[in-house]
Nucleic acid binder design. Sequence first.
DNA 1: ATTATATCGATATATTTATATCGATAAATC
DNA 2: GATTTATCGATATAAATATATCGATATAAT
Lengths: 214, 214
Amino acid sequence: MNFEHIKQTPEPTLRRLPRYLHLLIDLKAKGVQEVSSTIIANELGLDPVQVRKDIEYSSIIGKPRTGYHIDELIKALSKFLSWDTVQKAFLAGAGNLGSAMLGYKNFINYGLHIIAAFDKDPNKINTIIYDIPVYDINELTNMAKAKDVEIGIITVRANAAQDVANRMVDGGIKAIWNFAPVHIKVPKEIIVENAQLSIGLSFLKRKMFERNLL
Amino acid sequence: MNFEHIKQTPEPTLRRLPRYLHLLIDLKAKGVQEVSSTIIANELGLDPVQVRKDIEYSSIIGKPRTGYHIDELIKALSKFLSWDTVQKAFLAGAGNLGSAMLGYKNFINYGLHIIAAFDKDPNKINTIIYDIPVYDINELTNMAKAKDVEIGIITVRANAAQDVANRMVDGGIKAIWNFAPVHIKVPKEIIVENAQLSIGLSFLKRKMFERNLL
DNA sequence: ATTATATCGATATATTTATATCGATAAATC
DNA sequence: GATTTATCGATATAAATATATCGATATAAT
C-alpha cells in the first residue's frame, strides 16, 4: 500500500514549522509586515538557510533584501499545517490530563475541535467538563461512526490504552494522538502520534547529564 | 564554551529509548526475562539493526541467539535516561495544564519531583493542588535559589512565558521544560525542551493531509 | 556430537538532513 | 543614476542517521 500521494515533509522540518508560525503570529501582532529568514533564525536560534529551506515547503517565495510578506507566510504555513481546517476529535480518559485538555482553549486555533469525551468512571459519565460532554467509553465506537470523527486523543492509563485505541479504530477514526505511556498497535493505515511526557522529560534530563548538570 | 564532555546522543535515538524502556517494563511485568532487538523492533514497528544501535548507547551488550537480559537492559536504560535519579522541579502556571501536571503521579517514575507551583492569581496563591503548594510567582526566584531547584516547568500563557523563564534563570534553574506556545530566550547554557501541543498536533494533521485524509 | 538457527556486533552503503557557497536582485544609500 | 547591502533561491558539500550485509557465536534441534 502506498500513501505517498503527496511529497512527505521531513520530520525535523515539521517540528520547526509550528515554531515559525507561533513566532510569525507574535511578530504580526507587534505590527511587523515583512520578515526575513535571518530574523526568524535569530529569534529561534537556527540557521537562516535552514529556515529558508523549511519555508520552501509552504511554496511561498520571498523577495531579495526584504524577505517574506508576513501575512502571506502565516496564511501559507497555517494551511500547510492544517491549522486552518477544523477536525473533530474524541478524547478518551477524563482524568487529570484529559480534563486539562478539554479546557485548553487554544486547540481551536490549531484546527482541533474536541466534541466529546469518554470515560469508564460512572462518576464522570454524563457530566460536562468545560462544556464538553463525557460519555460512557462503550459508546465511543458507535458515536465515532455516527459523527464521523477523524481524530482520537488517548489520555487513559497505560493498561487501558490499547482497548481504547481498538475502539477508536473500530469507530473509523483515522488518526490517534496518544498520551498514554505505552505503544499502541493499530492497522498501518492509522496514523499514531505519540506525545508521551516521558519522551520530552528524558530528553531534558539526558541533555542535563551530557552537560554535567546531573 | 564547550559542553560536550560526554558524547552526545543522537536526537532520534533519544526519542526512541523511552519507548523501548516503556515496552521493556511492560514485558518484564508479563514475566519476560530475555528480549532481542527483533522483538523490540517488531513490537514498536522499527528496524532491529536500529534498535541494536540505539541500545549500544546504554553500553549493554547482548548475547547471540537470545538477545538482552531484560533486567540489565531496564536498569541500564533507566540510568541512561536518568529515570533513576530524582530532580527537583518548580512549575509555573497552575492553570488547567499545570494543575493536571501537578496531579500526574507518573513523574516520580521518570525521576521528576515537582516540589512547588507558582501562579500570579491571588485565588491560587497559598492553596494546595494535589499535595503541592502554590506560591506567588514573585517568590519563584528566591525559593529556587534556596531549594536548589534544577528544573523549571512553564505552563503559563504565551505572553507570560518569557517573564517566568527569566525568573527561573535568575533562580539558578538549569533546564526548562516549556509548554507555552512561544519561544523563550535564555542564556545558552540553559537547556530548553519545548513541549508545545501544537507541534504534535501539527505533525498529526500534516500526516493526515499527506495521506489524503483531510 | 553435529547441524541448524536466531541473534549479536562490526563494518559498509545508502539516505536524509544540515550547512556552506554563490550569482541574482530588490531596496537602501550615496 | 551608480553603488552598496541584505536577502533570496539554487547548487554543492558535509554531517548525521538509517539500512544492509556478514562473520562469529550461543542455544536449540537433530
